[in-house]
Amino acid sequence: MSFEFTKENLEKFEETLKRYPQKRAALLPALWLVQEQQGWISPESMETLAKLLGLTPAYIYETATFYTMYNMKPIGRHHIQVCNSVCCCLRGSEETVGYLKKKLEIEVGESTQDGRFHLSTVECLGSCGTAPMMQIDNDYHEDLTEEKIDQILEKLK
């Protein structure tokens, strides 16, 4: 399936180009736009970006895969990312990960069967003082308890 930016995103992309002296610099913002539009970076989208930016699809693939936040395959609708770095561990992130695995009946790196959630552990999210914490999509949820996790997940359909 080929990939095209929506009209709105194409405008955003063109606006982004103006910020840099070279086109290539717009690659990271462009990848963000792709992910915003369809949830992941498909091979077809990389071909489209290659044409737009005058780069090769291989270059785009090698760059995108360097960064952990670009999803190189489709994932569940809501991406739960639990910080499991040292400071969060000191305040209980090991327990948070354990609870989520049990609750969602999946392992880290998997999506639930209904495609509702995807669970990852990530490195420091800059939220050490409010640990344990998780990021779901663009939102931080901090000072987590089991009850709080239940309430947060309940609201996400």
Partner: peptide, 10 residues
Amino acid sequence: IYQHRGAGAY
């Protein structure tokens, strides 16, 4: 001034 978002790399 423009913002440039990283994508998860320490």
